[in-house]
């Protein structure tokens, strides 16, 4: 178990009084990898991410982080939410410093670190702006910088770019890969966008009705230049995943494979 950084075994979860959202999920993630969880809206992928974060605790099975059972949200994990959850009454730098300022008064080193993160994410000179003065893409960048501030070993991202236009989304994917490479971060990334999953991930899992129905290693080499997206291999992987997602459940897919 030690070799896997994040390990989920037979994880199941249901909100009280509601049908099961996640069931029988097995998922292992080695350190330093990027895994994408792909699925349609309402398939339970955000819930699975919250289970990985410790925001929810599984009804059945176990979630282990660095060999320890996860009992709640901890400092090892950074979370980037669906909508950039920036606080509009704080400027950019104070938003980024929030994880520290909730624990203690940020010192010069914290500020320097926040500045360097903003710089890496292309937000140099924006420290004094307020969130409403930023574009959607810039807000997402600030949210990523905030999640990275505490140097988390695991970054969990819940469709962070879903609300952005296609071009901005692609730019952010490139930035994210670059930042992850520099920080050697492990990332679990939830998305409904096939191309996004394939471009970012070392491994993609497809989720449907609370179960993982398909897993695939993405063999594209790294670093991945943006035009990888137009390659034949890339498109072949995307087509395969689309086929899996379009099939309603794992059983029909299996039949397809056999015929």
């Amino acid at each position: 178990m030690g070799e896997h950084f994040l390990s989920m075994r037979q994880v199941g979860f249901a909100y009280p009084g509601a049908p099961v959202v996640v069931s029988g999920v097995d998922w292992q993630m080695p350190a330093g990898t990027i895994h994408c969880l792909l699925g349609r809206s309402g398939c339970g992928k955000s819930t699975l991410l919250k289970l990985a974060a410790g925001l929810l605790l599984p009804d059945t099975g176990s979630v282990m982080l660095e060999g320890m059972p996860l009992r709640g949200p901890g400092p090892l994990t950074g979370f980037v939410f669906q909508a950039p959850t920036l606080l509009e009454w704080l400027n950019v730098i104070d938003n980024v410093l929030l994880p520290v300022s909730l624990q203690r008064k940020p010192d010069a080193a914290d500020r320097a670190h926040a500045h360097s993160l903003l710089k890496e994410l292309g937000l140099d000179g924006m420290q004094a702006r307020y969130p409403q003065q930023l574009s959607g893409g810039q807000q997402s960048r600030v949210a990523i910088a905030r999640a990275l501030l505490t140097r988390p070993s695991l970054l969990l991202m819940d469709e962070p770019f879903a609300a952005l236009d296609a071009l901005t989304r692609e730019e952010l994917q490139v930035s994210l890969l670059e930042v992850c490479r520099q920080h050697e971060s492990s990332v679990l990334f939830v998305t409904h966008d096939i191309a996004e999953a394939v471009y970012l991930a070392d491994r993609v899992a497809v989720m449907d009705k609370g179960r993982l129905i398909f897993e695939q290693d993405i063999v594209l080499s790294r670093p991945r230049p943006p035009d990888v997206r137009h390659g034949e291999q890339f498109n072949a992987i995307c087509a395969r995943l689309r086929q899996v997602m379009a099939a309603n459940d794992g059983v029909s897919l299996l039949r397809q494979g056999q015929s």
Partner: peptide, 29 residues
């Protein structure tokens, strides 16, 4: 206060008091 912001504060290990003064009160201002 938006649920995902409340989750953010939980993720960041904020106490109930911090969540009140640094999230809920500014949101309600």
């Amino acid at each position: 206060a938006h649920p995902s912001r409340l989750e953010l504060f939980r993720m960041l290990g904020a106490t109930r008091w911090q969540t009140l003064w640094r999230l809920k009160v500014p949101t309600g201002l």
